[in-house]
């Protein structure tokens, strides 16, 4: 990846949000409770992360059903994917000692 595209994103500096975004790239869409269990956080903590990332346009959520109950399905956006890629590239530059 080109150095110019590498940029640390302030929202992804929190390890939990970086983890959440990386997990979102492994699936196309994930149900709220499944993501909560995978991240091992509470409903309120996940809600805050998702709300913040959604307000930045990095993820989107929609109401749906799962196993017969109403729930929220979350997916990463194209913008979120680009920001994550750039953030990961910046972290790799730091690891490699590139200024």
């Amino acid at each position: 990846m080109a150095r110019s595209s590498a940029r640390l994103d302030p929202q992804l500096q929190a390890p939990a949000r970086l983890k959440l975004m990386t997990m979102m790239t492994a699936v196309s869409e994930i149900e709220f409770a499944t993501l909560r269990d995978a991240l091992e956080v509470t409903d309120s903590v996940l809600s805050k992360h998702v709300s913040l990332l959604a307000s930045e346009g990095y993820v989107k959520s929609r109401k749906g059903t799962h196993a017969g109950r109403r729930t929220t399905w979350i997916s990463i956006t194209a913008a979120g994917r680009r920001v994550l890629s750039s953030h990961v590239a910046a972290l790799r530059q730091i690891i490699d000692g590139v200024d």
Binding site: L8, Q13, P15, L18, K19, M21, T22, M23, T25, A26, A38, L39, V88, L91, R92, I94, I95, G97
Partner: peptide, 18 residues
Amino acid sequence: RPTPDEAAGTLDEARAAA
């Protein structure tokens, strides 16, 4: 800005979670 060790740890943890 994270240190190289912090960056490596964060990245490894995120990838492992995925």
